[in-house]
Write a protein that binds this DNA or RNA. Sequence first.
DNA 1: TCTACATATGAACATGTGCTCATGTGTTGG
DNA 2: CCAACACATGAGCACATGTTCATATGTAGA
Lengths: 120, 120
Amino acid sequence: MQPLSAGQVEDVAEVFRLLGEPNRLRIVLACLDGAHEVGEIVERLGLSQSLTSHHLRLLRTARILRAERRGRHVAYALDDDHVRDVVANMVAHLTEAHDHHGHSHPPHDGDLDQSEGAER
Amino acid sequence: MQPLSAGQVEDVAEVFRLLGEPNRLRIVLACLDGAHEVGEIVERLGLSQSLTSHHLRLLRTARILRAERRGRHVAYALDDDHVRDVVANMVAHLTEAHDHHGHSHPPHDGDLDQSEGAER
DNA sequence: TCTACATATGAACATGTGCTCATGTGTTGG
DNA sequence: CCAACACATGAGCACATGTTCATATGTAGA
C-alpha cells in the first residue's frame, strides 16, 4: 500500500470520524440491511427526530448514506458498499474471539504505565 | 449479523473515533509496516513530540497500538491485525476507482438539499 | 387551500477534543 | 551520581461537536 496523500488521509479520517459517534454508528448499522425511513430509525433507536436528522445530514453529505423520497417519507440506505464492508469487518473483528478481556478493558497498557495502580 | 449490544456499539465507535483524527490516523498508517520508535514517528509526521505521545497514549489504551521498550527508546506497533485489516480495507475502498468525483466532493447531497444554491 | 404529517434546518449551549507549554519519569553513558 | 536523552503526563486554551428547542420546508389528504 503506497503512502496516501494528505487529502486522502483526511478523507479516510473523515469517514472514520463520522462512524466514531455511537448514535451515528447505530444509524449506519440500522441501514446495513437495506433502506429505512427516518421515522423507523427514530423509533428504533429512540433518538429525537431532530438529532436523527442532523446525523443523517452528515452521513448523507459524506456520501455514506443516500436519501430517497417515498411519498412524504424519506428512506436512507448505504450509498455504497464500501462502508458496509468496513463496518462489517470491524464488527466481526471486535465481536469475535478476543474475549480474554471483558468488554470494559482492564488497565492493560502494555509494559508502560508502571506508575498506574500505586500512588507515589 | 446479529444486533450488537449497546456496549459493543460503543466499543466499535471508539475505535472508529480514534481512527477519525488525521494525525492519529497517520500514526496508525505509519505503523502498518511494522514497529516504529517514537522519534521516528515524530520526525516522519512532523508533529510535536508531546502531541505524538498524547496520541500514542490514546491508541495504546484503546489496544490499537502496542508499546515495547528498546533501550531508552519505545517502539509502537499494531497490537493486533484487526485494525490493519479495517484500515487497509477502508483505504483500498476510498482510493480505488471512484474518481468520478474529485477528492473534494461537490455538493451532491442526493435528491434533497434543494434549498441549497439559491437564497430565498 | 388548509391542515396534519414527515423531515430538514438554524441557533444556542454544554461538553469534548486537539494542541501547546511546561514539567515529570525513566534510561543510558560518563 | 549526574547529565543528557527519549518519552510521558498534566494543565490550560481555543475550537469542534453533539444535543435540544424552535421553526422552516415539503408532501399528501380533505
